[in-house]
Simulated scan of single mutants.
Amino acid sequence: MILIAGASGATGRLLTQELLNRGQRVKAIVRAPESLPDSLRHHDSLSIIHASILELSDEEMKQHLSGCTAVASCLGHNLTFKGIYGSPRKLVTEATRRLCETIRVSQPQSPVKFVLMNTAGNSNRDLAESISFSQRCIVGLIRLLLPPHVDNEQAADYLRTSGSVNDKSVAWVVVRPDTLVDEVCVSEYDVHPSPVRSAIFDPGKTSRVNVAHFMADLITNDEVWSRWEECMPVIYNKFFSLCHSGK
């Protein structure tokens, strides 16, 4: 069983569908189940949890995580004034913390995989990633002006510093796509340990369906997981795809 937080989002829906297509049983925490397409809402292998994740009690969180071998978070902030500057400002970080702490309290027999969708604009502080002075200045300004970026940074930092240090209940990967685009079908993509281009001055493109495919691979393919466990891989489309959404 796999739990998905943010399953009603643009990438979350694609990840949910991809996992179901692979024969996985999925639980989805969504605030608005009606936003899911009928093909998902009525799928026999999908259990929908109608809730806001930060409003779940500790006991409810434990119940929903029971029996799950993996958790995927595609949570993000709506690109509206309220979504960017309103509450909760630490949606991704607090959800990550609560999910991980609940897993640890439950003391699973084997580590639960935690896959967090993040952004190529966030650096992996475990590595000496090359960032120009100009980009550092702009990222610093983004931190001041856009709270969701800080939320993404702190969520990833939580996993880096707590996800594997305190115990072995949680194993993690932070997936960092670059500029997200919509495409209908999976295309070839490259995955790198660190950015190979500037997220500010020379951004690449990453289709949401490719992000969903890679996250599903991490969850279902042990070889892929072993390659990227406790890493923050960056994913880019390899080629320009002809499979554009609605075009």
Rank of each mutant, 00 (worst) to 15 (best):
107 Q>K: 15
236 Y>Q: 02
179 T>S: 12
227 R>T: 13
213 H>L: 04
40 L>S: 01
25 R>F: 13
159 L>W: 02
113 K>H: 12
15 L>Q: 03
57 S>N: 06
84 I>Y: 09
123 S>I: 07
236 Y>F: 12
246 G>C: 13
21 N>D: 13
207 S>P: 00
195 P>M: 01
193 P>G: 04
5 A>P: 09
74 C>Q: 02
11 T>G: 05
231 C>S: 15
192 H>M: 13
9 G>E: 06
92 V>R: 03
152 N>V: 06
53 I>N: 01
236 Y>V: 04
64 H>N: 07
79 L>P: 05
178 D>F: 07
244 H>R: 14
113 K>T: 01
22 R>T: 03
146 L>Y: 15
29 I>R: 00
244 H>V: 06
110 S>Y: 12
29 I>F: 08
49 I>T: 01
241 S>A: 13
224 V>P: 06
106 S>Q: 11
30 V>C: 02
219 I>P: 05
242 L>P: 05
212 A>T: 07
183 E>Q: 13
78 N>G: 05
27 K>R: 12
89 R>I: 08
207 S>V: 02
83 G>W: 08
176 R>A: 07
132 S>A: 06
64 H>W: 07
120 A>F: 01
244 H>I: 09
74 C>L: 03
122 N>C: 13
67 G>A: 00
142 I>S: 09
84 I>H: 07
3 L>T: 00
245 S>Q: 13
4 I>E: 02
92 V>I: 15
167 D>L: 11
194 S>K: 11
166 N>T: 11
160 R>Y: 11
159 L>F: 03
94 E>K: 14
183 E>M: 08
149 H>D: 08
30 V>G: 09
181 V>D: 06
163 G>P: 03
54 L>P: 10
160 R>I: 13
129 E>V: 14
187 S>M: 06
6 G>S: 05
225 W>T: 00
33 P>N: 09
46 L>D: 08
225 W>K: 02
55 E>A: 13
236 Y>N: 05
74 C>R: 02
190 D>M: 04
240 F>I: 14
186 V>W: 07
143 R>F: 14
130 S>V: 14
46 L>F: 00
156 A>G: 15
32 A>D: 12
231 C>F: 13
120 A>S: 06
242 L>W: 12
